[in-house]
Design a protein around this nucleic acid. Structure first.
Lengths: 162, 162
DNA sequence: GGATATATGTCAACAATGCTGACGTATATG
DNA sequence: CATATACGTCAGCATTGTTGACATATATCC
């Protein structure tokens, strides 16, 4: 029965280890977002704009409600940045064909360019970290971050889904 | 076109892999901070208060300038939350003995209790993720997050450097 | 076809948390 | 004694989250 090392395992989780994990997450995230935040500030935008542009780029034709679920914020909070991005020509809204109540979101060329500007450095950061750490470490990073997030979010990464 | 295979390496870093890493980080961080944020909101505080309480608990007697370096914010931003925490009795400031200009920070009992309240769920989250993922994965998570952060921050985790 | 639910948008007010700029005090150091 | 450093504070501004209320268009159910 104890053939699964996920239950009985050789991990000694000292307080120090847990604290270190908290700090790894904090410093990695802090530095990961720094450069994009600076670019955004130059254009009178913030991290919220980045997230919208990123996920619309990731899921072209995403509905507002799907986007709300990903971001886990209120529609009023989203509305502020989304309407700004539409007004400034980064995003276009297309009425859904199956459901005409929906406003399906797409990046414009301008929006695509912004997305690239913002994530180029982030991608390079990840690529460098992945290369230095190696394939086994990458799989470990994947497992642990998936374990940290809520099960609902975890499903987004299920194989053969999305 | 973003051709991500321009560098030859054993890792095939497709655009998809890099995007996934960005999202793993986003969802893990989003859910990791959610519960603590809710507790803080009940007490008219925010994530900034948590960070101060956390790092003061982590480094008793830390100076204001050291704390500023960790948080990477301005002293004016820190001042707002720090003076609130001192005023409300979560943190005490002790004049440095070697350098009397310094205001060395310590948690009070009340501050210690808050810190525990805020991080208990976070620790449990990490512990569960670590146990499920296993020791090898934990080492991978460590390597990758260290690779993502700036070299300056990485040094904080250097062996033999408390 | 009319009642009801859903998708989306908007106005208003408020709080937390970054920022810049300017200025002040105490203490250390050359 | 001059200057630098550690820390604090006041003021103003932008971003981004919240709650609450209300409006419109479209879908769906009986």
């Amino acid at each position: 029965m104890s053939n699964s090392q996920t239950v009985v395992n050789p991990l000694f989780l000292r307080d120090e280890d847990l604290r270190q994990a908290i700090e790894l997450l904090f410093f990695a995230y802090r530095d990961f977002t720094k450069r994009a935040d600076a670019i955004l500030a130059d254009q009178h935008m913030g991290r919220a704009h980045h997230r919208v542009v990123y996920f619309v780029g990731r899921h072209p034709g995403i509905s507002v409600s799907e986007l709300l679920e990903i971001l886990a914020i209120t529609k009023q909070s989203l509305s502020r940045v989304l309407s700004h991005l539409v007004r400034e020509g980064y995003i276009v809204q297309k009425t859904g064909t199956a459901d005409r109540r929906q406003r399906l979101l797409h990046l414009t060329e301008k929006g695509r360019k912004l997305e690239v500007d913002l994530t180029t450095e982030q991608r390079a950061r990840i690529a460098a970290a992945y290369k230095t750490a190696g394939a086994v470490a990458v799989e470990g990073f994947r497992k642990v971050t998936l374990g940290i997030m809520d099960p609902a979010a975890r499903q987004r990464f299920a194989p053969g889904d999305g």
